[in-house]
Structures are given as C-alpha cells and as structure tokens.
C-alpha cells in the first residue's frame, strides 16, 4: 500500500486457490481485455500490473499469482504478506476446491485480520450444468466471513471486470479509512527514530535541521 510520488495508489492483490481452478486464466482474461491488441501468449501470467482510475484516483494493481498445488500451500504466507486484497478462486464443479477456499479464508483471517479485502470467485460458470458447489452454500459462506462473492467465467469473460473493479473500490475505501491512523502511527515512529543512537541518528527521513 505505497503511494507513488505521482499520487498513484499501489495495491497488492494475491490470487489464491487450488491448481486448475483457473486463477491464471482469470488473470489473463482481465489483463487481456485491456490490452487486447497484444499477443497474450507472450505475457508472463504470474505477475501483472494493471492501472485503473477510480473516483479520479489513479490506482495500480500488482496482481500476484500463486501456485495452487497442495504441496505449495505452505508458501502462502510469503505471497500474501502485505497484500491489500485476496481473490480466492474455486471451480464450481469441484467441491474440494471450495473447501480449499475455506481454508484460505481461515488462514488469511488469522494472519491478516480485517486488513485484507477478501473476494471469493466461483469460476467456470460456463459449466453450470456440472455444478457441484451449491449456489446458496457458497453465497451464505461468503456472507458469513464478510467476503464478496462473484461468479466468473474466464472463458466467456463473465464477471471478471466487475470482480476486479469492486475489489479495487473496496481496497481504496479501506485504504482511505486507514490513512488517518497511518499518519498517527508514522509520526510516532519518527519520535522513536530520533532516540535511537548512532547509526540511525541521520535516518529520520523528515528531519528538518
């Protein structure tokens, strides 16, 4: 959540979910629509930046894809550290993947509390007829944990744009709410800074003498 000199807000968004639920496709679909004149196959779909303009504010989303295989689950923390938002993707035709989302929610709540905006995305709605995760269950679960729920289809390009847009709005709101407390905290840090000896004496960024 850094603010670049030009007034751009940088938000970090992490994509979590089991392998094969379509995280990468979702990300590509979102980026593709903005840059549809480019050859998509040349993009590295693991880390992408997307610039947005919301309420006159310039925003840059850094979207981090993660490896979804179970064996990489333990790596979660180093990816979602300092995230402003998380998109938890499951496959509506795969109940296990929804269970995995629940695990992520639990873990994120525990580690990051309410600092992070959570979005749950039921992907592959183009396969509605094969759905195994009940609509009501998914939505009521999302409600319960305070996450927004979206249905998406990376294939048909449904719900993708809306998902990212809403996520960004929420992150911006949260950021603006927190900014006041941030300011207080920062000034406190500066006071402490001045008291530390030797090597940090010249390190208080805003020293005015």
């Amino acid at each position: 959540m850094t603010t670049a000199p030009g007034g751009t807000n940088n938000f970090k968004v992490v994509l979590l979910g089991e392998g094969c639920v379509g995280k990468t496709s979702l990300l590509l679909r979102y980026i593709e629509d903005k840059f549809n004149d480019k050859h998509l196959t040349t993009l590295q779909a693991t880390f992408l930046n997307k610039r947005l303009n919301i309420k006159g504010k310039r925003i840059n989303l850094s979207i981090w894809d993660t490896a979804g295989q179970e064996k990489f689950h333990a790596l979660g923390p180093i990816y979602y550290r300092n995230s402003n938002g998380a998109i938890l993707v499951y496959d509506i035709t795969d109940e296990d993947s929804f269970g995995k989302v629940k695990n992520w929610v639990k873990e994120l709540k525990k580690m990051l509390g309410s600092d992070i905006v959570l979005i749950i995305a039921g992907n592959k709605v183009d396969l509605e007829h094969e759905r195994t995760v009940p609509l009501e269950e998914a939505e009521s679960y999302a409600n319960m944990v305070g996450a927004k729920h979206y249905y998406t289809s990376a294939k048909l390009n449904q719900g993708v744009e809306e998902l990212f847009l809403d996520l960004t709005r929420e992150m911006l709101e949260k950021y603006e709410q927190n900014s006041q407390t941030e300011v207080n905290r920062t000034s406190q840090v500066l006071v402490v800074d001045d008291e530390t000896p030797v090597q940090s004496s010249c390190c208080s960024g805003t020293k005015s003498n």
Partner: peptide, 14 residues
C-alpha cells in the same frame, strides 16, 4: 519453457 499456453504460477514455481 513458454509454449502455446500461457504460464501461470502453477508452472513457474516448480
């Protein structure tokens, strides 16, 4: 390693 398909983190990490 890039082929026809786009590569995501599932591919990158291993």
């Amino acid at each position: 390693i890039r082929g026809e398909r786009s590569l995501g983190a599932d591919d990158l990490l291993p």
